[in-house]
């Protein structure tokens, strides 16, 4: 039985335990043994994205030490996986095991589609769903086709969602615009960040979505913060929760 090293982003660990548990369930039901290396904390993206590369480096090094031994590394976050696959080079290029680590680290939906070859779920989610394409998953990991590039349309998240009975994906006016979270951007450029979030919510609302889902809880945390403050009836759920059979 192949073993997956489970990589749970720090804020998911502390704030969204259910997203982590849903990830475990999805992996186990496909026959994977899931291990959670308890020494893990954060991949270092907040530091790297703020320009504090010296502070990010030891976290990248720790990550390689902790996860290097697994057959697969899977995380329910496109952004954190993109940090490892697309941005760790600056810190770890040339280290033994680093190239292998990049090749075996997957975002959850990508792992389910490409490695576990999931082609069906016997579950229902009879709701109108707005799919938010989180940017790093989309444009760094290429989990789907971005609207800017003239390539054939595809989306791994969409493919999985369509396997659930009753899911109705609502058409958005702007298929893959950023929600405005952007890590420290959410605070450093608070005004623009919140307007971006409002605009995304409005798009999903106008399309008739009951729930916004995404591969990254960070986008949803930002959107949910706005939704709750404005007392809108819209809900947010991580893709893992919907796929694992959670009810709305």
């Amino acid at each position: 039985m192949p073993t997956v090293g489970l990589f749970i982003p720090c804020y998911v660990d502390q704030l969204y335990p259910r997203v982590g548990m849903a990830t475990v369930e999805l992996l186990e039901e496909r026959g994977y043994r899931v291990e959670f290396p308890t020494g893990q904390t954060c991949c270092g993206q907040p530091m790297a994205n703020t320009g504090c590369t010296a502070e990010a480096r030891p976290l990248a090094e720790r990550f390689l030490e902790l996860f290097g031994k697994y057959e697969y590394v899977v995380a329910p976050s496109g952004s954190c996986v993109a940090m490892v696959r697309c941005h760790y080079d600056e810190y770890l290029a040339g280290r033994p095991g680093f190239e292998e680590l990049k090749a075996k680290t997957f975002e959850l939906t990508e792992f389910l589609v490409d490695v576990a070859k999931v082609d069906r779920f016997s579950r229902r989610f009879p709701h109108r769903v707005g799919l938010h394409q989180s940017c790093h998953g989309l444009r760094e990991l290429r989990l789907g086709s971005s609207s800017e590039r003239m390539v054939a349309h595809y989306s791994k998240a969409e493919k999985l969602l369509r396997m659930l009975d009753g899911v109705q994906l609502v058409p958005l006016a702007r298929a893959d615009e950023c929600c405005g979270f952007g890590g420290t951007f959410a605070v450093a450029e608070e005004a623009v960040s919140c307007m971006m979030g409002d605009d995304r919510i409005h798009d999903h609302e106008s399309a008739g979505a009951e729930v916004i889902t995404a591969g990254d809880m960070s986008c949803l945390m930002h959107l949910e913060g706005l939704i709750r403050r404005q007392h809108k009836p819209l809900r947010v759920m991580h893709l893992a929760e919907i796929l694992a059979g959670d009810k709305l």
Partner: peptide, 24 residues
């Protein structure tokens, strides 16, 4: 709290993921 000017903070769960996973 710049985050909280226009946004609610997430609801804080009693247990972290690692606690839930360990218990399970």
């Amino acid at each position: 709290n710049t985050w909280g000017r226009q946004r609610e903070l997430p609801e804080f769960p009693a247990e972290s993921f690692r606690q839930q996973f360990k218990r399970r």
